[in-house]
Nucleic acid binder design. Sequence first.
DNA 1: TAAGATAGGGAACGATCGTTCTCAACGTCA
DNA 2: TGACGTTGAGAACGATCGTTCCCTATCTTA
Lengths: 190, 190
Amino acid sequence: MPAAITEEQTLLDRDALLDVAEDLFYRRGVQAVGMDELRTVSGLPLKRIYRIFPTKETLVVAMLERRDRRWRGSLAAYLDQVPDPRERILAMFDWLGDWFAEPGFRGCAWANVHGELGSSSPAVAAEVRSHKQAFHDQVAELVAPVDARFTEPVHLLAEGAIVVAGIHGGTAAAHHARLGAEALLRTTSQ
Amino acid sequence: MPAAITEEQTLLDRDALLDVAEDLFYRRGVQAVGMDELRTVSGLPLKRIYRIFPTKETLVVAMLERRDRRWRGSLAAYLDQVPDPRERILAMFDWLGDWFAEPGFRGCAWANVHGELGSSSPAVAAEVRSHKQAFHDQVAELVAPVDARFTEPVHLLAEGAIVVAGIHGGTAAAHHARLGAEALLRTTSQ
DNA sequence: TAAGATAGGGAACGATCGTTCTCAACGTCA
DNA sequence: TGACGTTGAGAACGATCGTTCCCTATCTTA
């Protein structure tokens, strides 16, 4: 009803909209959720949605961006609590296990979106690559204090665990990956 | 024009249709390819398509089934050429690298479809789980002659390599996974 | 208080989805 | 040869997609 929407309100709406979009897109896939459903669930008028995000594609990219910040931030905060470098590497797999155990866990949101839209939307594909690269670099920083040669296998164990957990459910993949990482780390003399 | 379609013709049409569906679904995603496009590209009348597969979902499941037989068969044939048990494990990563290098490689077809339809189609989700379980068991048979404790990490390295290669392209992930497997295998005394 | 600008609510747009139906044309068998 | 049954070609169906537009109601400013 008012005749002027503050910039602050726009940011609030933007965040509320991303909350709804992230939940629905992750649960059911991007193409299975229409803009009308985002309107219904968020309670925001379609006009406002399209003023904040001119297309569905930009909304998807923004959702992935914010999720990336939160996801990697949560991981970093968890790892910061572990002082020992070797234990910190293994803690990543504990963090993954906690994630897998969350209700509604359905694998890697970026990989899922990439499989669905990666070949038709360059913007989405770029955002997914950006996240995956950032996660890889985060693993590299985590592993470097022990032995940088373990960066790639540790990273691949983590990625493999995410995929397997996403399809089969449960936390077993995180434990298996952790055991694999332990075995690798043992190959370096202290 | 004829008034009776032989069972043999049905099998030929079925295979030709699965060829088209597998190619298009893998390249662009399932939801991005309509039944009309399958008709156009395959040259088969829509009526015949729906006689062979009563719904799009059954077509997707059949496509995944056949791809699973071929994919795992190709891997098994490649591994059969390698007599040494340790080398045979590493050869799996060479085979993955060859796969990653194929033009049009776009990651794991099963993971992609699972991300797109897994939450809305139980039949598709079951087929994906079946394939992933079968691949896991294939890795278990491959690894057991050396040391069964390496089954899970080797499997996760392979799954991780597939995801990373699907998003970033290139064969580097296969080489990294192979190096990781070599390091693991060295931890067991010959 | 009157004029102008912008908001919300939701209908409407053209396109496309998976699926079904119509109908003329043909092969098969009495 | 003629009735029947099945086919191919594609129109048509209702639903839904992302996006735009209309119109009334409200707030802001003169």
